[in-house]
Each structure stands twice: as C-alpha cells, then as structure tokens.
Write a protein that binds this DNA or RNA. Structure first.
Length: 135
RNA sequence: CCCGACUGCCGGGCGCCACGUUUUCGAUCCUCGAAAACGUGGCGUAGAGGAAAGUCCGGACUCCACAAGGCGACGGUGCCGGGUAACGCCCGGCCGGGGCAACCCGAGGGAAAGCGCCACAGAAAUCAGACCGCCGGUUUCGACCGGUAAGGGUGAAACGGUGGGGUAAGAGCCCACCGCGGGCCUGGCAACAGGCUCGGCACGGCAAGCCCCACCGGGAGCAAUGCCGAAUAGGGACCCCGCACGGGCCGCCUUGGCCCGGGGUCCGGGUAGGCAGCUAAAGGUGCCCAGCAAUGGACACCACAGAGGAAUGGCCAUCGCCGGGCCCCGCCCGGUACAGAAUCCGGCUUACAGGCCAUCCGCGCGU
C-alpha cells in the first residue's frame, strides 16, 4: 500500500500577497526529474528544488509545485503528514513569493519536516526562495 | 466492543448555480444561442482502519489458453461431522497432552505395499544376537563350553509392564490384572467409546526423507481490460504543382511519361495524455425465527470515501486521559498507541496506548 512518494498541490490561487499567481501541481515524473536538475537549497525543514521552465513548455499555471517524501521520512502516516505540512507552507508562501514560469519541488526530511515550528517553516521557505531566485 | 471531545480561522475532493475569458459549432450579419476548458464567487455534500498493514490463503471480476473422458506428472490439503460462493477459514465433536478448575495446546490419514534412515552412547537399533552378570559343566585356575535375558550399564527409544508361581539360574514357561492384536455385540451419521471373547505377544520410532491413499487445483492480474486520442516523426490512398536544378526508370538520343521532390485533403496503426473499469458490495442497522454453534432465513429501514504524483487536511485554543515534579487547595513540564483506503469481498497473520461490557474458574476476605 505505498502511494507514490510525492504529491502535488491542487490549484490554489487565492492569496494575500499582491501579484496572485496561479499555482498548479507538478504531476509528471518527467517534471520532477527536470526540477531535480535545477537549483537546490537545503533548509532545516525541507529541501527546495527550483527551475525556470523553458519556452517550449506550457506556461498555463504560472507556478507549478510538487512534493516528495522518500521512505527515509518514515512510514506512510509520517510521509503523508510531512507532505501535508509542506503543501500548506507552499500554499501560504508561493502565491506571493514565487515567480511565474518556475517549477518548485519541496522535499521532506526525516523527523524535522513533521515537527518544526510552522511559522519557522514559512520563513525558511521565503529565505530559500530568495536564495534560489537570486543565485 | 470503542479508537478522545469540542471551538475558531484558512484549505483540498465531488455536485449544482452565477459571472468572466478562450475555443468550437449553429443561426446569421455589427448580435444571439449551445457545448467544452480554464478562472472567480456562492450554496450544498461526503470524508481512513481494526488492523486500511504483511500480501500468506480463498473468491468475485477481466484477459489469455482450452472438445469430452481416462491415465500420468507437478503443487496443495489431510481425525470426524457441519457451515460457506470458496478456503489452508470458522463451528461442534473425537483422540492425545497440560491444568485443582474455568480452560488451553496439538500438520492428528496410512509404518502387517515397498524403499530409506535411526547420530552419540551402548554388547545389540529390527534381525540377528549377549558386554558385565546369574546358573550348570570342564579346568592347566588363565579361562573355555553350554543355558539364561530376571539384574547392571547406554540411550529419545532395548523385543510388553507389575505381582505371584515356577526353575540349576531364568524366561508368557504358567496364572491374575494392565497393555497390545484379532473377532463379535452395543451406542454414535462418523471420528470414536464401552463391553464380551479369543490369542501368550507375533507388530520399536521417523511419513515434517521418498512413498501409498483420498480430495482439490489451467495461466496471469485493475499497471487486468475496454474506449477516445494531440503535437512531432513515420506509413498508406487520392488530387494538385512541376519536369526548372539533381538522381533513377521506359535499351540508347529527341519528344513524352513515371518515380524520388513540393503542397493539400483523407485514412489507419501508435506514443504522451484522457475516459471507463470504480464502487449497490457474498452491503449496513434493527428486530424476529431455526440451530448447542459456525451459520441460514423472514421483515422493516438506510445509501455509507471513491482519489488518481493520489483529497479525506494545516495552524491555534480549551477540556479529557497517562507519567513526572512542586509549597500535593491547585499549578508546571512532557506524552497521548499501532498506523493512511487505491478494483472489491471472506479469512489468516503481525503491530498496538488507553478504555468499556458480559460470562466462567481459582484464591483471599466478609456474612
């Protein structure tokens, strides 16, 4: 009973930040593999992978985001919880801080992703996005 | 049998409605209507488990293979009866073992069909026999011959056991009881149990080594399977352009034509992707009837997750529960099991904090 190790967020385009960008899920294995070749930034609660899509790729959802939790994170319950927290962090931060035309992948880490203080996770993601965009 | 309660904010799934954008189609000419996709908002709605787990059995369902029957091979099951769609599951019983008891445990068919094995120890391990010993005889006093299987020792197991008679010493040699085997009777559907009688005992264990007997069994699985099907590349048919450059063919040259070439339309295969399969199920709840029970049946009511890189949530507050501490009115700190549906059912197994209900046995205390 093992679902695929990651999940994608559904569209979530209602945000507090000013330029409300539409967000779609990153749903294909190919998309994940391409994102893995992009920039990566490790944070205490997660690892962020980011990549600007090429011109030939679709740009209908301005931002695509996917989530990955390997079996190292734990059993199915722990993995699900980690993914749900990552999804919530992405939902709160990405519409304001993400950039159009980019794909993001958030990777859960064993233990920390499920327990780190939630507000801290959000500031972590903002910092990671700034590093990835600026690099 | 239950799987903490409740509050607030913000989300995701599904359905319906409204608005907007885009596309397509139809009316038509400056607009209207329909459908689809996307976005936004509103309303409604459902929302993880007893094991959803391991994937160990049994089915439903799908595709593939396959005349029927017999024999054989391979795999599985294995006391008897019942239950079931089926099972290796469940219920009831039998036998053996354990326990004062309630109750618990047992792969529990066949070893007089055959083969094989039985380590170590021991004289000897299944078919013959005897190490010490005991008894008798002989004796050169070392031992030898004969009888014996009671006693000793070994072993998981030693050719029935206990007691008595008997004897040179012994022995089912004889007797009683027990055990074992055959036959008959009784009870039971049966496994089996009980009784009577005969036999002086012939027949050790392992079938979880092979085997024999009886019964069962095609293979693969929802990533099954069916349908729709883009871009790009490639294939086919037809039409058009052009014989202008290059190549080939109609033997060669000229003319002419064809193919490779360019463009268009259509067709089919197929990839990404999408849709179906997908949840009404051997379904749930209540109550009654039959049955010791598993279970079967009647009636009434209910509609109860269907996702698809995969929703069923995130964060906070209060209370409950457990553990620890303190100045033991109360407060503080930490914890709150095992674990996440993936086509669906029936089982088995494994993991697990805490709690609730019922019944039985034993012990202690009270009466």
């Amino acid at each position: 009973m093992t679902a695929p190790v990651a999940t994608a967020a559904g569209p979530t385009a209602q945000a507090a930040a000013a330029p409300a960008l539409s967000i779609g899920g990153l749903k294909t294995r190919a998309g994940f593999l391409r994102a893995a070749k992009g920039r990566r930034q490790a944070m205490p609660g997660f690892i962020l992978q980011a990549r600007r899509r090429g011109a030939d790729e679709p740009h209908v959802p301005a931002i695509r985001v996917g989530f990955t939790c390997s079996r190292k994170v734990g059993n199915a319950v722990r993995r699900n919880r980690a993914k749900r927290r990552l999804r919530e962090v992405a939902r709160l931060v990405l519409p304001g801080e993400g950039r159009a035309g980019w794909d993001y992948v958030l990777i859960g880490r064993a233990g920390v992703t499920a327990t780190r203080e939630f507000g801290q996770m959000q500031t972590d993601l903002r910092a990671a996005l700034a590093r990835v965009h600026g690099a």
